[in-house]
Amino acid sequence: MEVRTIKVFTTVDNINLHTQVVDMSMTYGQQFGPTYLDGADVTKIKPHNSHEGKTFYVLPNDDTLRVEAFEYYHTTDPSFLGRYMSALNHTKKWKYPQVNGLTSIKWADNNCYLATALLTLQQIELKFNPPALQDAYYRARAGEAANFCALILAYCNKTVGELGDVRETMSYLFQHANLDSCKRVLNVVCKTCGQQQTTLKGVEAVMYMGTLSYEQFKKGVQIPCTCGKQATKYLVQQESPFVMMSAPPAQYELKHGTFTCASEYTGNYQCGHYKHITSKETLYCIDGALLTKSSEYKGPITDVFYKENSYTTTIK
């Protein structure tokens, strides 16, 4: 009895394709271990004539594949690729409408935090270190965002349907971005203890939790000093293409032309909904596939993004 075979390709990165001759009487799992086709788990399936010449994702289970996976995804987590594939199996079914010149995501599976993050990423200057993220990001900007969303979920250790947080998501993504040249110098002034300067680099240099107003941050924000008295913390120097200011959701007025974009969060910790506000020729609110415009805006804002380049204080 002759062994019926077909020729397929296996890959971990969709760049390096490895030619395989597979036995049609055995499952993919018996031949390769966990195997995925377009995100779908085909591990328990036997090869079919229609699979001839198709590319299958496999887990990096030998040295060659491990090197290829690390170079593309910059992670050695053995569960990463499987999590990416199972997320992709959902995100490829989502709709990605162009809204006001940006790629958004039609609401499904509690994905409003991903839509808000995706919209924000198209408006701030950011370059990702893992080629996987950078490639998928370019495709997302062009309207094909399924891979990018699935990668975000995998890097953030999230599953489809789980509630997510924009600030946490951005923080994970910033860790995989090139923020080497970003720098922030802060000064804390206390009447009792004097003053202390701190220099922050990388992710810490672009994120701040405690106030939404970048102007206020430049002037000074009140913080408790270690001595128990009130101290003032203010920005001395900022070198970065953008800054992200966050605070627990509270009524906040966004003035046209003073910011790049913002995240609105309605609801409580267990259950809520994100919308995205962007400042173009007027203010726009993007909620999944829905767009509304207004000249002014007041609502429960939790993150505001500002364009920056270089700032030095005039406070002496």
Rank of each mutant, 00 (worst) to 15 (best):
K298G: 05
A40L: 14
P241W: 03
E264I: 06
S25V: 12
N49F: 10
P130C: 09
Y36A: 04
S310L: 14
M244H: 03
A262W: 02
L283H: 07
E308D: 05
G33H: 00
M170A: 03
Y284E: 14
N268S: 14
T91L: 05
K255N: 09
F70T: 12
T10P: 02
K293S: 12
S263W: 07
Y274Q: 00
L59V: 11
I105M: 03
I45F: 15
I315C: 15
Y113D: 05
S294V: 15
N157Y: 12
V185M: 03
P300T: 12
F217M: 07
Q216Y: 07
M24F: 12
Y155H: 07
V160G: 01
T314E: 15
L81H: 00
Q20I: 10
N157L: 03
D287C: 00
S213H: 01
L153F: 07
S310N: 09
K7N: 14
L37W: 13
K280W: 05
N309E: 15
I152Y: 05
W107N: 07
D63E: 13
K92P: 03
C190I: 03
Q31S: 12
L17D: 10
T43E: 02
T10M: 07
L235C: 05
K233N: 07
T64V: 12
L153T: 00
E296L: 09
D13W: 08
V221A: 03
K219T: 12
P34A: 15
H51D: 12
I45C: 12
C285V: 14
G39L: 07
Q30H: 13
N61R: 11
Y84Q: 01
V236P: 03
L283I: 15
G228Q: 08
Q175H: 09
I105Y: 07
Y72Q: 10
T232R: 08
W107P: 05
R139M: 13
C225R: 01
H256A: 09
E281R: 05
G257M: 08
A117E: 05
N147M: 10
H256T: 12
T5V: 11
Y297R: 03
H256M: 15
A40C: 10
L186Y: 14
A87K: 04
K280S: 12
G101R: 04
Q122F: 03
A40H: 12
E204R: 12
T43L: 05
H90W: 09
G82Q: 15
I124P: 03
Y234Q: 08
Y155I: 10
D303W: 01
K218C: 04
V3F: 13
S171V: 10
L179Q: 01
Q122L: 01
F80W: 03
K280I: 10
Q123W: 01
D135V: 07
S171G: 08
C190M: 03
A142F: 09
G53F: 11
P60I: 09
T11I: 00
Y297N: 01
G210L: 03
C193N: 06
T226R: 14
P300C: 13
L119A: 01
K191R: 12
G267V: 15
M245G: 04
S104K: 05
Y265C: 00
Q123R: 08
K183C: 06
Y28W: 05
L200N: 02
L254W: 00
F242L: 02
K127G: 07
C225P: 00
C225W: 02
T64H: 10
G288E: 13
I105D: 00
N178H: 08
T75M: 13
K218H: 00
N110Y: 05
Q98T: 13
L81R: 02
Q251S: 09
L212V: 09
K191W: 05
W107S: 04
T11M: 03
K255R: 10
I6Q: 10
L291Q: 14
G39K: 00
L102I: 03
P224D: 12
C112R: 00
T11W: 05
Y284N: 10
F32G: 08
E2N: 13
R141W: 08
L59W: 11
G164D: 01
T159N: 12
G39Y: 09
T278K: 03
C261L: 04
N89E: 15
S295Q: 15
P131S: 03
